[in-house]
Simulated scan of single mutants.
Amino acid sequence: MEDKNVKIPGQLDFSNIKTYPVSQRKNLVTIDNMAVPDRDPIPDWDQEGFDELIGRMAEARQNGRAVIWSMGAHVIKNGLSRYIIELIKRGLITHISGNGACSIHDFELAFNGGTSEDVPTAIEDGSFGMWEETGRWMNEAIRQGAAKSLGYGESLAVYIDKHPERFPYKEDCILYQAYKNDVPATYHIALGTDIIHQHPIVDFEAIGKASGIDFHKYCYSVSRMDEGVFLNFGSAVIGAEVFLKALSIARNLGYPTYHITTANFDIIDLGDYQAKIGYDDPHYYYRPRKNIVNRPTSMGGKGWHFCGDHKQTIPNLYKRLTEKLPEVERGVKDYL
């Protein structure tokens, strides 16, 4: 059997990396400053097409069609997890997807009640990301889950379920609540981008296997989103690229995925995002514009780009959608 601890010339050995207790860290985001749905005031925000999007989301769920929610980590860092959890519980989201950072901030909130370190100071001495509990527990969870052919998101949720004493704040964990409500939560990992990849026990084979399983789950959901909705919040690279590949796979296999609605939410103002632009325009290289809003809807459906802070857009989406469609009885009409 191959010894994974054998040192290979030309590769840096991680075994002597120093880690620190997460209790020593100052957290910029905590459970105490997370937003509370149906209590906190809704900020003023609106854009053309937003009400139509809400109508399409409500119609999709009434007809048992998919509503896939893709996001970057700043949704969680902005304290908005409870809005997403409430939408999951009400049956208004059928799939959650994110990058590795999403899973880390979500996981840290569940056990630590706080997340998000001060990167500018921590990078100066090499302590950035070197948190023992985060790295050890997440890598343990992924390795154990991969050994059982579980996906990345499910591996973390199962680990939380097995160690409830370690996770006093699991009720505010998106991936855990998705698991408890039978909603897939998939995480699409770029190796070397996440702090748990810095930990001495990191197992890249297990990470690759678990994230690969999640991609297969994600492709399944995308293949069944005809007359459904895809939403992306702030994931400018991973979310856009994974969606385009999954959509191509679905269409290659003959699944009807042309009558779809897509919407991208971000703080970047694209102006006329439907206009054709060339290589000399920097907006051409903004992936969500092409990969979420325009190209997937070129043969049917409709795509929007909404400009706004997540603290504006997500509460407004929650309020208008739950007013229009308070909840859906899952397991009866679902197309998935």
Rank of each mutant, 00 (worst) to 15 (best):
267 I>K: 14
172 D>A: 04
153 G>E: 04
298 S>G: 05
275 A>N: 10
90 R>K: 10
116 S>I: 07
249 I>P: 01
309 D>A: 01
247 L>H: 13
230 F>M: 05
139 N>G: 12
297 T>G: 05
230 F>S: 08
198 Q>H: 12
93 I>N: 11
333 K>I: 11
299 M>C: 04
327 E>H: 14
15 S>F: 00
156 L>C: 13
185 A>S: 15
242 V>K: 12
76 I>A: 14
282 P>F: 01
73 A>S: 15
262 T>S: 12
286 Y>I: 12
252 N>S: 09
133 E>F: 10
277 I>T: 00
252 N>H: 13
167 F>A: 04
118 D>K: 00
186 T>F: 12
40 D>F: 03
53 L>H: 11
141 A>L: 12
277 I>M: 11
69 W>G: 09
301 G>N: 09
276 K>R: 01
3 D>I: 06
133 E>L: 02
216 H>Y: 09
141 A>E: 04
316 N>K: 15
279 Y>E: 12
23 S>P: 06
10 G>V: 11
1 M>C: 13
36 V>Q: 04
185 A>V: 07
104 I>E: 02
134 T>A: 05
109 L>A: 05
214 D>V: 09
229 V>L: 08
310 H>I: 08
172 D>N: 14
126 G>T: 00
259 H>I: 06
48 E>P: 01
111 F>I: 11
198 Q>L: 15
267 I>D: 07
151 G>S: 03
42 I>S: 11
80 L>R: 05
115 T>Q: 03
316 N>A: 00
291 N>Y: 08
318 Y>C: 07
155 S>C: 09
295 R>Q: 14
335 Y>V: 00
91 G>I: 04
101 A>Y: 01
140 E>Y: 12
27 N>K: 12
309 D>T: 00
